[in-house]
Each structure stands twice: as C-alpha cells, then as structure tokens.
Design a protein around this nucleic acid. Sequence first.
DNA 1: GATAGAGGTTCCAGCAACTGGAAGGTCAAG
DNA 2: CTTGACCTTCCAGTTGCTGGAACCTCTATC
Lengths: 131, 131
Amino acid sequence: MNIGEAAEQANLPRKTIRYYEEIGLITPVRSENGYRDYSEMEVHRLRFLQRSRSLGFTIEECRLLLSLYDDKHRASADVKAIAEAKVVEIDKKIKELTELKATLSALAHSCHGDRRPDCPIISDLAGEPCV
Amino acid sequence: MNIGEAAEQANLPRKTIRYYEEIGLITPVRSENGYRDYSEMEVHRLRFLQRSRSLGFTIEECRLLLSLYDDKHRASADVKAIAEAKVVEIDKKIKELTELKATLSALAHSCHGDRRPDCPIISDLAGEPCV
DNA sequence: GATAGAGGTTCCAGCAACTGGAAGGTCAAG
DNA sequence: CTTGACCTTCCAGTTGCTGGAACCTCTATC
C-alpha cells in the first residue's frame, strides 16, 4: 500500500513516516514506480510507533521498544523496566510544572491587573533570579 | 563588565547570553578590544530573561515581557493576561501528563515483569492507536 | 621578552522530532 | 490531453540552546 493509506491507517502524517524511514525505524520496499510500498506488518510497526510516541517515549526509546517487539524471546521484565522509568520521568515533570504553576499563579493573583503601570509580576521578573 | 561576570551575575551560560544577543534580546556595546561590555541595566535585563525563561515563558513571550518591562506606561493588565494565559497552558500540560502517567502506570502494573516473553505493554503498543 | 593560562571572539554544526515548500514524476478519470 | 491527486527528493526552518575549532587578548610569572 502507498504511503497515503499507510499514513491514514497508522494515524501519522506522511512526512513523519518518511522521517521514520530516514532514521531507520522502518524500511518499506519500493514499487516499480519508486513509490514506497507498505505491508500489513509495517503498518503495524507504524501504529506501534504512533502509540508509543503518543505515550511520551522518545524516538530512541521507541527504537528499543521496537527491537523488544521484534524479539520473540525477550523477557517482559525488560519492557516493564522501560515503562516504569518513563512513569518516574513523567512524574518528575508533573511535579516541576505544578511548582511552576503555583509560582506563576501567585504572581498573577498578586497583580491588580488594571491600568496602573506598576506590576508585581514585572517586579518579580526583574528581581533576583531563582537559583 | 565582560561576558563572564555578566553570566555569573545573571546566572546564565555565556553561550546563552551570546545567543540572546544574536536574536536581538540584548545589545551590549563593545570595548576597544572587541569584548562585549555589559552595563548594570543589561545585567538586569539578563536576570529578567533568566527568571522568565525559568518560569516557562518562551523566548517570544520573554521578548514581549521585556517590551512591557521597558514601557513605563504599560498597564499591569497586559502583563497579568500573559501570566494567566501561561498558567492555563501549564495546567493543560499537567493534565495531559497526568493522563499519560495513569495509562503508562496501568500498563506497567498489568505486566508481570518476569522472564516470560509475552508482555501486555508490548501488546498494547502493538494494538489500536489512541486517536 | 617569552610563555602559560584564563579570558574573550567568530563561525559552523548538532540536538529532537518533525514540518513546510519547491520542483518534478506518476497515475486514474473525464 | 489535461486536470488533480498522489508520489518522489532535497533543502530549509522550527526552539533554545550547546559544543567545538580556530583564533585573539589580557595578565602574571619566569
């Protein structure tokens, strides 16, 4: 199947699929006319990529997951470890953003937000850096 | 003052400061020897940038904030609006990450994580894409 | 005066993960 | 035979820096 249909089935932009090929995540054969020709297996791979990217795995993590996906004898523990590490990472990011939001909310609340030119937000930004 | 001390006082890497100059956020004069020469005002600007970047504002938002910072007659409402929009944005990101974490945690929990080759995480990734 | 080291300068390239556009080939329908 | 939708490649841009190479300048010491 051509890239257009593969893109539709995998829910990925064509450009992204070509990019994945460029970085060696997938290598479809070519038809006589030079068009990429995707098999069902390859569409599966693309869907796998779409799903794992949407779950926040980096390309390199996807590459690793794909190799585990291909390896029929890999232990599930390997996969679980990657997923759990990702959970920790995401959790850390959530905490960081939560702190950020608190700081910024406090700043916004402290600002009267009218036509007066003095503004506590600007004052804070101009103040000492947070180290 | 030279870039090294400015960097220290603003808590920013030299490279970053040069980059900020390249994109027009700051334009120090040059000494006879060609070295950049930062005034106290400019170090303030750099600190302002450091702080706002660390609060999650993009470079373009920083540019806007700086122009408001420079404008003695701007209304605090303008600044407040930017800060509040950022809070909404951050909140959205937190929600997304929280959902992500829930999905990934559930997957990791459902995986026995032993030496068996079948793995529910891989099965899920290989399944239908989340649209 | 020579030299070493710690500053400074420029420019070029690269990261992640695409995305957009130009210039052109191919195919099916009317 | 032309139109339009598809496909191809290649080049450049995005965000916000970061690293490195090659080179200049200043200060201190021998």
